[in-house]
Design a protein around this nucleic acid. Structure first.
Ligand SMILES: [Zn+2]
Ligand SMILES: [Zn+2]
Length: 730
DNA sequence: AGCACGCCGACT
DNA sequence: GTCGGCGTGCTC
């Protein structure tokens, strides 16, 4: 009597699948969830495969307790992708699978199948304008349905905001809208009413290249300067693929998934567009996941984790701003969504578009090697000219609140012309340092090797690394002097300075602190979106997401941190950020100007960017990487470790290094070294870097190595993880 | 990781 | 006497 054995992916920090007996009376296919006994309790796992009976089992198997689903939650291509990801990132398959499932489905909960509903307006429904001002949500729903002119998919309506479900319910109760059984085919025809996208010949060529790849793996690097209309290319290509009855996945960086962007996709696509991002609640995410899996959603716009959403008819993947660091998960299962997406396209045999004005050097290298086809968009919409760049040497100048005389003059001129200014400063808060003039005491975090930032509005000192905060001291804690001074500039302080310099001008600050609380910010932003004169102050956030039509001047207050960082990726990241911010300047007929303040005006990176373009920079930087044998000319693995003491961390990493020397051949071992900030949130952190000329060489015996590390008793008190293709050495 | 077992010090 | 500290082993 042969016993059926099933191999299950269970969420546990242990490598591999777990074997169970599969009782004859049960029925399940790979991809279904099952409830299995695990340790002392029970856990939910995914059936991975069935293995015939085995005679010599190393241990007695337990039987599956219960089958939860009758059809597979994860289809074959997605399981194949998860398996590849688990192997490539050396992370347990069960945990990889968990990141691909909505939280509700990681438990024993049944899949909630929402039949796709289509809502139509009834004749009794009043105009949106006639509604009570308080019924703003009902208003936008009615408005959207009116604009559509036919029945609208509920998934589509739900993109209008949170808890649209209750709004629909109320409208239905009033008899203003009805559940329309038929999906009005008018929707497909209403393509006429959709804005006809006017593409230039470069954009048309790009669309053709993407769409012609039909039915086979074809990675395309879409390299287009800011304002060259990459999004129109995405929309047109997506529409074409959707027209063939397929689905499209669009990945965007965390902070770029704004209502603005979503509306553009919805306006250009005549089928259900669904979004998924980290700001969503569990049930919203589950709904989007279900819509994607059932095929109700034809285009999914999502952030990092959306790369693992099931899309049974996937025909195209688009990765916008492919160089963006938020595609890399920085904890646990440290996958890079861009690279996983390319693998997904390869496994599915479909085209994949990597879009960026400033592609990562890895991607440029792939294009140079001929692995990716490069398509360029060189023209800005409306024939706009590229911005002019000017470096201002601030070494010998007395700055006014971080602003040089040159920059202040330029801002004034710009405002007088009724135009907008962006000032970029990559530091939140009021001042990055609080110090005592009498004894030299500096406010430092008790848990990190870092200084605390002063936040004026909160009257508190904040550690940006661990979140620890304390009240603003009145006197020096060391000598009781009252001579406390705030050194350096943060966005909060810059906002204050500008308020004094340009009292008549609205100043809007955009950073993590202002975007948290909405309301007043939204109102200010609205004005800026309309093009009214004003100054925008902000961190990286001003470079991404929001789009302002009337900006002609961009000031970068201090580029030096990026120029001087020892990290080998720093030049690349600095160039990308600088050009992305610079790209905000100038639209239409108005040329843009960019002022860069620096104490290193002769720095080669800066010179390269001032005289050349991103391509010439990339070429020079790739040469540097080649000479130093850094990625993409080599492959890296970073072992990260942290514990309650520097000794424990170091001992563990020393052992890891010894073991690596023994087990891993043709691999260079650097370290162990303490992390750039050794103590963070009370933990002592260290690194061990492995590098090899070939990917296969690097990966060959890693699993054996980690198995050895797991055996080490002292490793119990050390938290450690493997980071493949590390991006940041933080 | 998450849980139980087990072996030692300092409490009622 | 026993409550609880965390070192150690295990999860199909
Ligand atoms: Zn002092
Ligand atoms: Zn801290």
């Amino acid at each position: 009597m042969s016993k059926k054995i099933v191999r299950v992916a269970v969420q546990a920090p242990l490598p591999g699948l777990f074997d169970y007996l599969f009782p004859a009376h049960m029925q399940a296919e790979p991809g279904c969830r099952v409830l299995v006994p695990f340790g002392r309790g029970k856990r939910v796992g995914i059936v991975w495969e069935f293995a015939g009976q085995k005679d010599d089992l190393p241990y007695k198997l337990k039987p599956v307790a219960q089958v939860i689903d009758d059809t597979a939650l994860l289809d074959v291509p997605l399981r194949q992708l998860l398996e590849w990801s688990s192997n490539y990132y050396h992370h347990p398959i069960g945990e990889a699978v968990a990141t691909a499932l909505p939280v509700n489905l990681r438990q024993e909960r049944a899949v909630r199948t929402h039949r796709q509903r289509y809502w139509a307006l009834c004749a009794t429904c009043p105009d949106a304008e006639e509604l009570d001002a308080r019924a703003s949500r009902q208003k936008i729903v009615i408005q959207m349905m009116k604009e559509a002119g036919s029945a609208v998919a509920e998934t589509q309506l739900r993109e209008l905001g949170a808890d649209i479900g209750s709004v629909l319910k109320r409208l239905a109760q009033k008899g203003w809208i009805e559940d329309s059984a038929r999906y009005a085919s008018a929707n497909a025809e209403s393509g006429e009413s959709r804005q006809k996208l006017n593409l230039n010949d470069e954009q048309r060529d790009a669309v053709t290249t993407i769409v012609e790849a039909d039915g086979q793996f074809a990675p395309v690097l879409l390299q287009g300067v800011t304002g060259s209309g990459k999004t129109e290319v995405y929309i047109q290509a997506a529409q074409a693929v959707i027209g063939q009855g397929k689905q499209v996945l669009v990945l965007v960086p965390e902070i770029a998934l704004t209502p603005q962007l979503l509306r553009r996709f919805q306006a250009g696509i005549d089928s259900a567009v669904v979004s998924m991002h980290s700001g969503m609640g569990d049930s919203e995410r589950e709904r989007a996941w279900n819509a994607a899996r059932s095929g109700d959603a034809r285009l999914l716009v999502g952030t990092r984790s959306a790369v693992f959403v099931p899309l049974p008819e996937l025909g195209l993947i688009i990765i916008d701003e492919e160089h963006d660091l938020s595609y890399k998960q920085q904890e646990g299962f440290r996958y890079a969504a861009r690279d996983v997406a390319v693998m997904r396209a390869k496994q599915s045999g479909i085209p994949v578009v990597l879009g960026s004005a400033t592609p990562s050097l890895e991607t440029i290298y792939n294009a140079i090697q001929g692995r990716y086809q490069r398509v360029r968009l060189t023209r800005r919409a409306g024939g706009a000219v590229p911005p002019t760049l000017q470096a201002v040497d601030i070494r010998s100048e007395h700055l006014h609140g971080g602003l040089s005389a040159t920059l202040i003059k330029a801002v004034r001129k710009c405002l007088q012309a009724g135009e907008q200014v962006i000032l970029f400063l990559n530091r939140r808060g009021y001042a990055p340092q609080l110090t005592c003039n009498d004894c030299g005491w500096i406010a430092e975090c008790e848990h990190c090797d870092a200084r605390m930032t002063f936040h004026a509005s909160a009257h508190r000192l904040w550690c940006h690394h661990c979140g620890y905060q304390k009240p603003q001291p009145k006197v020096c804690p060391a000598c009781e002097s009252e001579e406390l001074v705030y050194l350096g500039q943060g966005t909060e302080r810059l906002e204050e300075t500008l308020g004094e310099l340009f009292a008549e001008t609205p100043v809007v600050r955009i950073d993590r602190d202002t975007t948290r609380r909405k309301g007043s910010l939204e109102a200010h932003l609205e004005k800026m979106h309309m093009g009214e004169s004003g100054i925008l102050v902000g961190t990286q956030m001003v470079a991404k997401g929001h789009d302002f039509p009337n900006v002609t001047l961009v000031g970068i207050l201090n580029l030096d941190a990026g120029l001087l960082s020892p990290d080998f990726r720093s030049p690349e990241k600095t160039a990308q950020l600088m050009l992305q911010v610079a790209g905000r300047a100038g639209r239409g007929k108005k040329p843009g100007h960019v002022i860069i303040q620096t104490r290193n005006p002769e720095h080669p990176l800066l010179q390269e960017l001032l005289c050349g373009d991103y391509d010439s920079f990339a070429k020079a930087e790739l040469k540097e990487r080649q000479e130093a044998v850094f990625p993409p000319y080599s492959y890296q693995l970073l072992l990260r470790a942290e514990s309650s003491s520097a000794e424990k961390t170091d001992d563990f990493l020393e052992y890891a290094a010894d073991t690596a020397r023994e087990l891993l051949k043709n691999v260079e071992i650097w370290g162990p070294v303490p992390a750039p900030m050794e103590r963070k949130a009370g933990h002592f952190r260290g690194h061990l870097l492995l590098q090899a000329a070939e990917r296969a060489t690097l990966h060959a015996h890693v699993d054996h190595w980690t198995q050895q590390l797991r055996k080490l008793k002292t490793a119990r008190s050390v938290r450690w993880s493997i980071d493949i293709d590390p991006q940041e050495q933080l």
